[in-house]
Design a protein around this nucleic acid. Structure first.
Ligand code: FES
Ligand code: FES
Lengths: 133, 133
DNA sequence: AACTCACGAAACATATTAAGTTACATGAGT
DNA sequence: ACTCATGTAACTTAATATGTTTCGTGAGTT
């Protein structure tokens, strides 16, 4: 599958929006992210559900940042985008009766969890203002 | 995309093969892994290229483990399977001129690398005999 | 009231990649 | 000659982010 670039895109555009006074329209954001306005609405909708941005219809409408960059971390945005797995690596039959297979899956699961924990911990340490220049 | 279960499957079957005296046919392995013989040949072929297993055609043929479990680590098998990325998370446009986007991508790349390094280091510490019961 | 702008949402198409499948060729033992 | 088993090519399927089209809805403008 294609790589999930939503986190990177959202971080980028949130910082961009922090520099703006006017709301940013989906069309405008789509041009910056080199994508489609519907993709923007779909992804930004996840952030709106968490209260990080607000959307306004009609003339002068669009998307507005609802929090200070210093108050949100990469982890907040990552979590807002859903709970899909971070890894391409998966386990084999998890309902197996084979003890060997269970041991293999256990070892892999532990290793993956430790790796993901490190990643998320780091995400949690970085607020968005650290990335703004 | 579906999760990549090749590592889990190969670890399982390599340990299984260590218990065997006869070579294991692709059909036999496919049954154990609940998959197709061609998938087995395709994946095992990666391990043969590294010398971890050998394949023999014809009567009494099949796949045979070529090394001691204690002499190979999870990392060896992981590497043998190719160099595809471990993460579903990707970066946005890597040729961007925007400094903010560059900073975002740099931060994400560093975090992902640290996480992957930890994973691979752990894989490197575990030899397959540790998983055999 | 009519018009335009911008989001909301459904439905469908595309791209990517592991996995699954079919079919045939090749080499080895019986 | 026959059977067994791998080698390989070509095609299909599954899963999921992304991309696209289309229509609906609410809000401001004229
Ligand atoms: S285009 Fe504005 S921050 Fe990158
Ligand atoms: S079936 Fe033999 S090790 Fe799992």
């Amino acid at each position: 599958m294609r790589k999930d670039s939503r986190l990177s895109r959202m971080l980028h555009i949130l910082i961009h929006m922090d520099h703006m006074d006017e709301p940013a329209t989906s069309d405008h954001i789509a041009i910056i992210l080199q994508t489609n306005p519907v993709v923007v609405r779909r992804t930004m909708g996840c952030l709106r559900d968490k209260g990080y941005v607000t959307s306004v219809k009609g003339h002068g409408g669009g998307w507005r940042l609802n929090v200070a960059l210093a108050d949100i971390t990469l982890l907040d945005i990552h979590n807002a985008l859903g709970e899909s797995s971070v890894f391409t690596i998966g386990l084999s039959d998890e309902n197996t009766e084979c003890l060997i297979e269970k041991a293999v899956n256990r070892e892999l699961a532990n290793a993956l969890k430790a790796s993901e924990d490190l990643l998320l911990a780091r995400f949690g340490e970085v607020s968005l203002d650290k990335l703004a220049i």
